[in-house]
Amino acid sequence: MSEQEHEHEHNYGKVYLILLVLLAVSILGPMLEIQVVTLITAFGIAGVKALLVARKFMHINEAPKFISYLMTTCLVFMMLFFAGVSPDVMESSGDNWKKNLKMWLYSPPPAHHASHDPEGHGSGGH
């Protein structure tokens, strides 16, 4: 154990340095203002950093396997959520259908027939 612990301690500093370098890259990369580079350097590197922290600082790979599976499952369910919801929230048209809020919001209101009804009844009707 003691040898392993020593190795850890040795690694922590190195991991920290790598994280700082990655941070620098993730700031400098997007400055080129090329979309692909931005995506890779900003989000790809965020993933790498997160994985490094999880493995080297949180020791997820030393915990029993089901911990990694659990974390992965949570992430997969979130992707599933994104996949299931994004067609509604992000898309506004498709085959023969359209989601046009303006059409609903700014159409003139239907004429009121109910105002004659003394009881206030009978407007809903058929």
């Binding site: 299931g84 067609p87 509604d88 898309e91 498709g94 085959d95 259908w97 989601k99």
Partner: peptide, 9 residues
């Protein structure tokens, strides 16, 4: 199903 969700979904 009738909330205006994407029919493909």
């Amino acid at each position: 199903f009738i909330a205006g969700i994407d029919p493909r979904m």
